[in-house]
Simulated assay, not measured.
Amino acid sequence: MSSEQMQIGEVAARTELSLRTIRHYEDAGLVTPSARSQGGFRLYTEADVARLMVIRRMKPFGFTLDEMRALLHATDRLDSGTELPPEEREDLLERIRGFEQAAQQRVEDLRTQLTRAEEFAATLAERLTGTPVS
């Protein structure tokens, strides 16, 4: 096995995704092992790991599998090395801008939720200790 290829266990460790989750993303068409070993084991490359990291980063934002697929398709087309017609390139960039804006909005929503959660935890701590928590 080439040093640039790794089995699913190593990929799982590097991405902090379970084997089951990686297989699920494979079944959903989001990632495809780059090769198979003679024994039939999935073999992944650094590019596959990078793709899984994009998926992992999208998950907490609540993006659907279809949305993940759409973003990955756009980035795959832009990264393909193929000369794209200007209108297609702009369309792909606009799609990515839409995902970036959605991610920024979700970051703000999460910050609000975190502030509320911290306030709630502080209220509980104050109740338990009888002293205000700052």
Rank of each mutant, 00 (worst) to 15 (best):
M1V: 13
S2K: 05
S3I: 04
E4F: 13
Q5W: 13
Q5G: 14
I8P: 15
G9E: 03
E10M: 02
V11S: 03
V11E: 04
A12N: 14
A13K: 15
R14T: 07
S18Q: 02
S18Y: 00
S18F: 08
R20C: 14
R23G: 15
Y25V: 10
D27F: 08
D27L: 04
A28C: 14
A28V: 11
A28W: 01
G29R: 05
V31R: 05
T32M: 11
T32P: 07
P33D: 05
P33K: 03
S34H: 02
A35H: 04
S37W: 05
S37M: 08
G39M: 01
T45D: 01
A47R: 12
D48Q: 01
D48C: 05
V49M: 00
R51N: 10
L52C: 00
M53H: 12
I55E: 07
R56M: 02
R57K: 02
M58C: 03
M58D: 03
M58K: 02
F61C: 02
G62A: 03
F63T: 04
F63M: 12
L65R: 13
E67M: 01
E67I: 10
R69F: 08
L72T: 07
H73T: 03
T75N: 03
D76H: 04
R77P: 00
R77Q: 11
R77H: 07
D79K: 06
G81W: 05
E83V: 08
E83C: 05
L84I: 04
P85V: 15
P85I: 10
E87V: 08
E87S: 13
E87Y: 07
R89T: 12
R89K: 14
D91M: 10
D91T: 12
D91R: 12
L92K: 05
E94M: 07
E94A: 12
R95Y: 07
I96E: 01
I96P: 12
F99Y: 01
E100S: 13
E100K: 11
E100F: 06
Q101W: 02
A102T: 15
A103Q: 10
A103V: 14
Q105E: 09
R106S: 06
E108Y: 00
D109F: 01
R111G: 07
T112I: 13
Q113A: 15
Q113D: 14
L114G: 07
T115Y: 10
T115L: 08
T115P: 11
R116Y: 01
R116Q: 08
A117I: 03
E119L: 09
F120I: 13
F120P: 15
A122S: 02
A122P: 01
A122G: 06
A122H: 02
T123Q: 11
L124W: 10
A125D: 12
E126I: 05
E126G: 04
E126C: 05
L128G: 09
P132F: 08
S134K: 12
S134W: 09
